[in-house]
Amino acid sequence: MLQSEIEKSLEVLNKGGLILYPTDTVWGIGCDATNPEAVKKVYDLKQREDSKALICLVSDTRMLAKYIYEVPEVAYQLLDASDKPTTIIYDNPINVAGNLVASDNTLAIRVASDEFCQRMVRQFKRPLVSTSANISGYPTPQSFSEINQEILKGVDYVVNLHRDKKCNKPSTIIKIGNDGVFKIIRK
């Protein structure tokens, strides 16, 4: 079942489509983080200004290093020490859609810990946009049943896994500069 859902998701992602999927935190809307048209579809669906950055998922730190010009050593230490999903905002992203990069030339990336997400991103071989499955300004759904119909109808595929699961809270977000200085944005 898991591999079947991964294959269906990859088919949609490879065509520039949007998926709705369970992550290691909350239900997310996802697309190919290297495809600017797909990223625009996410902003449009969420009715969100593209000046508000989105998070990406990578499968591991090797993949992370392909999308950040220089990963500060402290980031690896934080990821190793973290016992919960942690998103880090990095300076100087590379090889991703331009409309995904924040105006200050940063990008938020989380190394996925959920088995489905890890395997899907590894097989996709590119980072995946991961943003909460809600219209901008509305609360983040805590379960599949709370997801707005507009979101459900606006994606190209809804992953058929973990629909009965209550979601964890969103990830911790930490901003790390190339100088190694970091700031906790969300606990």
Rank of each mutant, 00 (worst) to 15 (best):
E7V: 11
S9N: 05
L10I: 07
L10P: 04
N14W: 04
G16M: 02
L18E: 03
L20F: 02
L20H: 02
Y21H: 11
D24T: 07
I29L: 13
D32R: 02
N35R: 03
K40C: 09
D44S: 12
D44C: 09
L45P: 10
E49G: 15
E49T: 13
S51Q: 13
K52P: 02
A53L: 06
L54I: 03
I55E: 00
L57V: 11
R62N: 15
M63A: 01
A65L: 06
K66S: 15
Y67W: 03
E70L: 11
E73S: 15
V74N: 04
A75P: 00
A75N: 00
Y76H: 15
Y76L: 14
Q77A: 14
L78F: 04
L78K: 12
D83N: 15
K84F: 11
P85S: 03
Y90N: 00
I94L: 00
N95S: 12
A97H: 00
N99G: 04
L100M: 05
V101R: 00
A108C: 02
A108L: 02
I109R: 00
D114C: 09
D114M: 12
F116K: 02
F116S: 05
Q118C: 15
R119A: 12
R119Y: 09
R119K: 15
R119C: 10
M120E: 08
M120L: 15
R122A: 15
Q123H: 09
F124I: 10
R126E: 09
P127L: 01
N134R: 01
I135P: 06
Y138W: 07
Q142S: 15
F144S: 02
S145D: 13
E146T: 06
I147T: 07
N148P: 06
Q149H: 09
Q149A: 14
E150I: 14
E150S: 13
G154C: 11
V155N: 08
D156R: 07
R163F: 04
D164I: 02
K169H: 14
S171R: 10
I176T: 06
D179S: 09
D179P: 04
G180Y: 02
I185C: 04
K187Q: 13
